[in-house]
């Protein structure tokens, strides 16, 4: 839309100067990038929140008949070491169990998978967030410090009923949880 100003020679001192400024900026940019990488590495070493290490397979066709995801084994289990393990599956268009109950101040291991298509697993208000891919087991570990009641929506499109796929998570006081756990093998808060 407008004309060009006159050109200058590539050998004038201006060219040298321009190059110097440009190099300086490029170095700053590289430093920013290095800083980001170091930050990621440090967070990784300290295991702040890290992706699951192992790849675990499971056949969605036999989920219901054998293995750890059979219906009677879903829900929250107390482990000998005092931690708890939550097993859940996502399927069109609900979670089993629909309501997960876990204690405060306890290491909680989540193990979940999908019985059909890809689903999402997100506990609102926390950073527990993973994908449920048929054929694979997703794992995550958490520790809740305060009792909360949260939604647990499926956050990946899984078909026409996707908008109705909302589970629930209740984090309850550790003592109350232990009382509940005394006479049941697997706990849920489905009523």
């Amino acid at each position: 839309m407008t004309g060009d100003p006159p050109p200058s020679s590539p050998h004038d001192p201006g060219a040298e100067h321009a190059l110097r400024i440009e190099r300086r900026w490029a170095s700053v940019a590289v430093l920013i990038v290095i800083f980001l990488i170091v930050m990621a590495a440090v967070a990784g070493v300290h295991q702040a929140t890290m992706p699951q290490l192992k790849l675990e397979l499971v056949d969605p066709r036999t989920l219901h008949v054998s293995g750890e995801f059979i219906e009677s084994n879903l829900g929250t289990a107390v482990e000998p070491d005092g931690s708890v393990t939550v097993r859940a599956i996502g399927q069109q268009y609900s979670f089993v169990p629909q309501c997960i109950v876990v204690p405060t101040d306890t290491v909680v291991h989540f193990r979940a998978t999908s019985g059909d298509v890809v689903h999402g697993f997100l506990i609102d208000g926390t950073n527990l967030n993973t994908m449920l891919i048929p054929g694979f087991i997703s794992t995550a570990t958490a520790r809740f410090s305060t009792p909360i009641e949260s939604h647990m929506p499926c956050h990946e499109y899984c078909g026409v009923g996707h908008e109705g796929m909302w589970g629930k998570v209740k984090v309850i006081d550790k003592a109350a949880f232990e009382k509940l756990a005394a006479d049941r093998r697997r706990l849920t808060c489905v009523d």
């Binding site: 990038v33 980001l36 990488i37 990621a40 590495a41 990784g44 890290m50 992706p51 699951q52 290490l53 192992k54 790849l55 675990e56 967030n129 993973t130 994908m131 449920l132 891919i133 054929g135 694979f136 087991i137 997703s138 794992t139």
Partner: peptide
Amino acid sequence: FMDPEVGSGFKFMHSVFTA
């Protein structure tokens, strides 16, 4: 990043390149 079918090592590699 949040998927179970890729191990954490390659997730880290890709996040470095992403930077």
